[in-house]
Design a protein around this nucleic acid. Sequence first.
DNA 1: TTTTGTTTTAAACATTTGTTTAATTATTTT
DNA 2: AAAATAATTAAACAAATGTTTAAAACAAAA
Lengths: 208, 208
Amino acid sequence: MDKPDNITNPDTSTEEKIKEAARIVFTGKGYAATKVRDIAAQANINQALVNYYFRSKEKLFDLIMAETMKILFDKIKPVIYDESTTLNEKISGIVDNYLELLLENPELPLFVVSEMRSGSDRLPKMTGNGKLFLESHFAKQIRQLQAEGKLNFHPVNIMMNMLGLIVFPFIGRPLMLKTGIVKEEEFRKIIEERKKLIPLWIVSIINL
Amino acid sequence: MDKPDNITNPDTSTEEKIKEAARIVFTGKGYAATKVRDIAAQANINQALVNYYFRSKEKLFDLIMAETMKILFDKIKPVIYDESTTLNEKISGIVDNYLELLLENPELPLFVVSEMRSGSDRLPKMTGNGKLFLESHFAKQIRQLQAEGKLNFHPVNIMMNMLGLIVFPFIGRPLMLKTGIVKEEEFRKIIEERKKLIPLWIVSIINL
DNA sequence: TTTTGTTTTAAACATTTGTTTAATTATTTT
DNA sequence: AAAATAATTAAACAAATGTTTAAAACAAAA
């Protein structure tokens, strides 16, 4: 019988253990606050192995960041490029997919935006992703809406609102917990509730 | 005649210069990425003076963070405690006040939430601020709404949505600029537009 | 003016932290 | 089994970074 945790199994290989540990520590604390020693400790391996497998802290970070961005974009790409669905269906799809993903990875939004500060270097090329969105069927449907005069504001507001409503609870979660405005147990329930509500809200906003 | 930039003028005193420089660098890059040397350079003073006036990087940071939180809370306190205004008026007041403040200080939201990560220590007591909000007239009016059965979801959603709609554009700004979804020049115009729109959106959401 | 106290400076210091090295152990190849 | 290659380790290294020091410059008081 095959050992499921064989050395050849990439999921338990040292390289993969380091990547997974790096993902956890980087997304939890950000690049600057993360020490290579933290990653080694999290992975339960010798510190030198981090450099042995990934050359440098920065290279490892770039890898994690690129993978993270890919996860985020892959999650909506099929939805926004689907030419067979209505705008409303796409909105529901985006909300569902993202809230599900974020419930599993609550630190992702804060991780991405904190590393994307104005003056920051070490940023992956994002222009491609921007184009990818602007050329989507979703974007086309919004432009359509605007062309028909059914939109009373700048179309980018739709994007801002949707992302804001989806993502903000996760970004503000530590703060809301800290201030006692929300309790830990309620949070998940509230997010589940929002899965149904946000699409209604967005549509209501569009048709205002 | 008095010199406006006299040595006794607290605005140009060394201590104040350091504080202002620290505010700029901390809010721009976060605690971990900020070097004491960065602050000294930004303030055009000798590095040792930072420790001379503020003892340690951490003490200086705590001061800046506390002042920042105070600015943020002072900005809405008069609005949410005003017993003579309607809920809708309060919403408009909050949106106006915050968007105005954030147009002047676009990095504030990202600064606050990045330093408030789940596992982070070095956080100011926030329970007081939470109470401050929950005891406000604004919170009372929302509970009232709920008691009358006019609210079809958890009341905290109102808070999440309002803050999300106000704050997210500033949090996502670097990313949106980077992806090319928004151009620098449009941003301010869009925010100005949102001053009128967000209150409408919130009210529409509440009454859904 | 002399003295005293405060502010500023350059340098040194100690610690943290990313990276490298050289030796050891484990695995693969011949 | 022997040789070669790869993975792992503990230690060392070098650069960075927060903090301290001791002297100099400056201002205030006597």
